[in-house]
Simulated scan of single mutants.
Amino acid sequence: MKFFPVILFCLLSIHGFAQNPVYIGTYTKTEGHVDGKADGIYLIHQISGTGALSEAVCVAEMINPSFVKASPDGKNLYAVSELGPGDDESGFIHSFRIKGDNYLEEIGKISTESFAPCHIEIDQTGKYVFASNYVGGVVMLYERDEQGILLKRQKIRLENAEASHPHSVSISKDNQFAYINDLGNNKVWIYNFDPESGRLSPNNQPFVKLEEGAGPRHFSFSKNEEFAYSINELNSSITVFQRDSLGGLHIVESYSSLPENFDGKNFTADIHMHPGGDFLYASNRGHNSIVAFQVDKKNGKLEFISHYSTQGEFPRNFAISPDGSFLYAANQNSDNISIFRINKMNGKLSPHLEPLKVKTPVCIEFSE
């Protein structure tokens, strides 16, 4: 007998499995690169023991919440509104209070002071929030007040602003360094971060430049943070860096995210280290796959494991469950989220249950 995820969710929830809230960012309108169909931010619940997902429910109507981020204390959710020059005066970040039933109550909205905001990061204290604007070379730093409303602290404008495309900010676990992946300038900018004053300042090594045509997009750290990994959108590669004690980056090696015989068009999107630190995963839009690597913890290098079809089209963001047992991939152009079980011994993925239907999903965020 075949059980769909929503039915399985209902059956298993009565047997005491944990139900983890998961928020889904989406596109809601047609842009040059996507035919948005959704209504806003969706809420689903994941059953920890089985990986099943409940039916998606829209809990906040807004335009293009293409990236969402939960605060570490589980009290707030933040969502970009990815707007272009023809839409409004700027892009925005919307602030929500997460209520007891995991539904959302909007409590604030603030400009990102440029256009097409595409990523949110929160520092290790949970006090500061960073937003990357894909257009205009602007990165914003905000402070959270007691309710979770955002207050402007600092505006960073990267060089060559017209060509710059900052795609993400990543904060080290020691909360001392910020790494900005700038696809347009083909650099990873390195900043010192002072959580006492809430300010960024250029590192002694202000940036590392990647190989021509790479296009750094997202960033991930090894478990001990001795190494870091950049997923590069334009040439479908992953660059391994060794980090030094001052936050500097030194290129170790680069790896293709694609099979050798693939000659189609592809754009990489997301990258995540497994919680155990032994495996690294990345998404391919075009090849429509998740690629898995074994991580050598001594030198940070990668050993290819396999590619896995996402059972959908244009997988953008993906998320690994906090317990490291399941991986969920948001297939933007086929309106579904695929579910994989992770073999924690060898890092291999296996399709698990039926994909969940969600309109134009692009971001998956577990909340505490």
Rank of each mutant, 00 (worst) to 15 (best):
Y42V: 00
Y42M: 01
H45F: 15
H45A: 02
I47D: 11
I47K: 04
I47Y: 03
S48L: 09
S48I: 05
G49C: 03
A52I: 01
A52N: 01
A52C: 01
A52R: 02
L53K: 02
E55F: 09
A56S: 13
C58A: 15
V59I: 11
E61L: 03
M62F: 07
M62D: 05
M62Q: 13
I63P: 00
N64K: 02
P65R: 00
A70H: 02
D73W: 04
D73T: 09
K75S: 13
N76I: 03
N76K: 07
L77R: 13
L77Y: 13
L77N: 12
Y78K: 00
V80M: 11
G84S: 12
G84H: 05
D87A: 05
D88S: 14
D88V: 09
E89D: 15
S90Y: 07
G91T: 08
F92Y: 15
I93F: 14
I93S: 09
H94I: 03
H94K: 03
F96P: 00
F96S: 08
F96W: 03
R97T: 14
I98P: 06
G100E: 14
G100V: 05
G100T: 08
L104P: 01
E105C: 06
K109Q: 11
I110L: 12
S114W: 13
C118V: 09
C118Y: 06
I122T: 13
D123R: 06
Q124P: 01
T125P: 00
K127T: 15
